[in-house]
Design a protein around this nucleic acid. Structure first.
Length: 419
DNA sequence: TCTGGGGTCCTATGCCTT
DNA sequence: TCTGAAGGCATAGGACCC
């Protein structure tokens, strides 16, 4: 059996742990740049604030209803997440940390356990030790555990936050209840297409022919169908496979038209990727650069483009990655466009300990030592103390985070004080 | 004026080599 | 030297997740 543990309104719950005044009040947490709502308390959901609501469009409503608004504080959420996960690992040796607020547990050899009461213990302990409320769905497959979890969340009074699918009747009933668009793995596109052919629930979906699903939704769709039928084909992914790409992308406060300004951003994004690479002892051998105009300004000329730049050797050097990124930007930049978003993604990752050398062209070994020195100084003196000439030396731009809560658990001088 | 960021997997396509 | 089949590989794009 699998259990899916999901923290309720996770970011909002993290803010509440350290500020109990927020209980029972409508709260939203905004995305980076204070752009849109990415976590909402139940009270905020009741006010009709949808997921992804642009903050500027809802300012009135926030004010009128006394909605408390927070900028996202990922340092805090990440720390709270690892506390929750470490508690979960006490209950089974088989755990997959699926996202910042979700984990799959596998119960093998738990035949004589009453899983519902076992999960009740998990829920109680997580709440007691961290203050985070969770919901638990239990079922024979991962996809059904997702369904089960949804039921637990949707009917908190009947289920007390825990639901178990352990019979055919319960499985069929759940699938008949679940809208096709709410099925894990069915996104917006597939949902539209399925609804067009009168497939409105998960139950309708499992009655489709395998061949049709394979043809129109690839093996991914077919796997999902098997899972919903109760045949487990997705196992836990317990060891985190190493990352295959690392991205740094941002939207700008306004729009940028000037080449030099975008170049400076791209250079900084590239260096940020290089730092992330070094922090996990990786190299890359290519960097993808993209720029795009504002898709919401339909009356302005639209342009989006990206280019993959191959580096002839493996590297994690600020200078090399930045150089190739800027070279890529030069190739795709077009004049007269109001750019809104840009980013760099490093790909072709491998270990910086052992990597393939190039017969003709290799990195100057000095880079390795230089990067070590830079990382050392930055660690001691703070980030962005050392910059390339292609970066903005005065740092005139910064992410908008006007409503940031303190880092209660990860900065000593912001720790909570009891008077 | 103001609409996030960071990932994954799968498939189709085209080129190259055997 | 030409040809077709088949497999490997890189790339782009679509779809999904949180």
């Amino acid at each position: 059996m699998f259990a899916l543990i999901d923290c309720n309104n996770f970011y909002v719950s993290c803010e509440r742990v350290f500020n109990p005044n927020l209980n029972k009040k409508p709260i939203v947490v905004l995305s980076n740049n204070d752009g849109c709502a990415i976590s909402r308390s139940n009270e905020a959901k009741k006010l009709g604030i949808p997921m992804g609501a642009p903050a500027f469009k809802y300012e009135e409503l926030f004010k009128k209803n006394g909605v408390k608004v927070f900028s996202s504080n990922f340092a805090l959420y990440g720390d709270m997440s690892s506390r929750v996960m470490s508690i979960l690992s006490k209950f089974t040796p088989n755990i997959e940390i699926y996202s910042i607020d979700e984990a799959f547990l596998k119960f093998e050899g738990f035949k004589n356990y009453d899983l519902e009461s076992y999960c009740q213990n998990i829920k109680d302990m997580v709440f007691k030790w961290t203050g985070i409320p969770i919901s638990i769905g239990i079922a024979p497959t991962k996809a059904l555990a997702k369904v089960s979890n949804r039921i637990a969340k949707k009917f908190p009074y009947q289920t007390k936050g825990i639901y178990l699918i352990n019979s055919e009747e319960k499985r069929i009933k759940a699938l008949k209840w679940l809208n096709i668009g709410d099925v894990w793995g069915i996104g917006f596109r597939h949902a539209e297409r399925l609804k067009n052919i009168k497939i409105n629930t998960a139950y309708n979906f499992i009655n489709l022919e395998d061949g049709w699903v394979r043809k129109n939704m690839s093996v991914v769709g077919l796997r999902l169908k098997k899972e919903l039928e109760g045949k487990s084909v997705l196992d836990l992914e317990e060891v985190r496979s190493p990352k295959k790409a690392i991205a740094t992308t941002r939207s700008f406060e306004g729009t940028i038209t000037d080449y030099e300004k975008i170049k400076e951003r791209i250079s900084t994004f590239a260096i940020c990727c290089a730092e992330k690479l070094r922090s996990q002892n990786s190299n890359c051998n290519s960097v993808y650069v993209f720029i795009r105009s504002n898709k919401f300004q339909k009356n302005k000329p639209q342009y989006r483009n990206g280019i993959l730049m191959t580096i002839p050797f493996s590297t994690n050097s600020n200078m090399i990655i930045s150089k190739y990124a800027i070279e890529g930007l030069r190739k795709i930049f077009r004049k007269g466009i109001n750019y809104k978003k840009a980013g760099t993604i490093v790909m072709g990752l491998d270990s910086s300990e052992s990597y393939q050398l190039n017969m003709f062209e290799n990195e100057d070994l000095k880079h390795k030592y230089l990067m070590k020195t830079i990382d050392f100084i930055q660690k001691k003196e703070g980030q962005s103390k050392i910059k390339l000439a292609s970066q903005d030396l005065r740092k005139r731009w910064k992410m908008k985070q006007e409503k940031l809560s303190p880092n209660y658990t990860c900065k000593l001088n912001e720790i909570i004080k009891v008077k």
